[in-house]
Amino acid sequence: MCLGIPGQVVEIVDAGQHLAKVDVSGLRRVISVRLVADQSLGAGDWVLVHVGFAMAKIDETEARLTLAAMEKLGQAYLDEIEAFDSSAIA
């Protein structure tokens, strides 16, 4: 199962290439934020991450509620965290 998971933007690493470092449950990865480039992202903002792309900008309340609900999914949540942990943009 592939889910979207909330991540918090830590920094914009390359604005020209639309790349940002996000933190998802303590794991940090560089992802593409090109799909939400028109929403002026910055450090501290929350995004919904799926397969290395920010799909939507979300507010902190929605992010925290979604993370709490996902944690209750058990293995599906752990699988998503594992997939995020093994992903990288080259």
Score class of each variant (00 low, 15 high):
Met1Gly: 13
Leu3Gln: 10
Leu3Ala: 08
Leu3Ile: 15
Gly4Thr: 13
Gly4Gln: 13
Gly4Ala: 15
Ile5Gln: 06
Ile5Thr: 10
Pro6Gly: 05
Gly7Cys: 06
Val9Tyr: 04
Val10Pro: 00
Glu11Tyr: 02
Glu11Phe: 01
Ile12Asp: 09
Val13Lys: 12
Val13Thr: 15
Asp14Gln: 08
Ala15Ile: 10
Ala15Pro: 00
Ala15Thr: 07
Ala15Leu: 08
Gly16Glu: 15
Gly16Arg: 12
Gln17Glu: 14
Leu19Asp: 00
Leu19His: 12
Leu19Met: 12
Ala20Ile: 05
Ala20His: 05
Ala20Met: 06
Lys21Ile: 03
Lys21Ala: 11
Val22Arg: 05
Asp23Thr: 07
Asp23Cys: 11
Val24Ile: 15
Val24Glu: 10
Gly26Leu: 00
Gly26Glu: 11
Leu27Asp: 11
Arg28Leu: 06
Arg28Asp: 08
Arg28Cys: 13
Arg29Trp: 01
Val30Asn: 09
Ser32Cys: 11
Ser32Lys: 08
Val33Ala: 03
Val33Gln: 02
Val33Leu: 01
Arg34Tyr: 11
Leu35Ser: 08
Leu35Asp: 11
Val36Arg: 02
Val36Pro: 03
Val36Ser: 03
Gln39Pro: 00
Gln39Asn: 04
Ser40Cys: 10
Ser40Val: 07
Ser40Glu: 14
Ser40Gln: 14
Ser40Trp: 06
Leu41Trp: 00
Gly42His: 09
Ala43Met: 07
Ala43Arg: 12
Ala43Gln: 13
Gly44Cys: 09
Gly44Thr: 09
Gly44Asn: 07
Trp46Lys: 02
Val47Thr: 13
Val49Gly: 00
Val49Arg: 01
His50Leu: 12
His50Glu: 14
Gly52Tyr: 02
Gly52Lys: 01
Ala54His: 02
Ala54Leu: 04
Met55His: 06
Met55Phe: 02
Ala56Leu: 13
Ala56Thr: 05
Ile58Tyr: 01
Asp59Arg: 04
Asp59Glu: 14
Asp59Cys: 09
Glu60Pro: 00
Thr61Gln: 13
Glu62Phe: 08
Glu62Ile: 07
Glu62Tyr: 09
Ala63Arg: 00
Ala63Ser: 09
Arg64Cys: 05
Arg64Gly: 00
Arg64Tyr: 06
Arg64Trp: 06
Thr66Met: 14
Thr66Lys: 11
Thr66Glu: 14
Leu67Gly: 00
Ala68Trp: 03
Ala68Gly: 00
Ala69Arg: 14
Ala69Cys: 03
Glu71Arg: 15
Lys72His: 10
Lys72Glu: 15
Lys72Asn: 10
Leu73Lys: 12
Gly74Gln: 09
Gln75Tyr: 05
Gln75Lys: 13
Tyr77Ile: 05
Tyr77Phe: 15
Tyr77Gln: 01
Asp79His: 09
Glu80Met: 02
Glu80Cys: 02
Glu80Tyr: 04
Glu80Ser: 01
Glu80Asp: 08
Ile81Glu: 09
Ile81Phe: 04
Ile81Cys: 10
Glu82Trp: 03
Glu82Asn: 11
Ala83Gly: 00
Ala83Phe: 02
Ala83Thr: 12
Phe84Tyr: 14
Asp85Ala: 15
Ser86Cys: 07
Ser87Phe: 15
Ser87Asn: 07
Ala88Pro: 00
Ala88Thr: 11
Ala88Leu: 11
Ile89Pro: 00
Ile89Gly: 00
Ile89Ala: 07
Ile89Val: 15
Ile89His: 10
Ile89Trp: 10
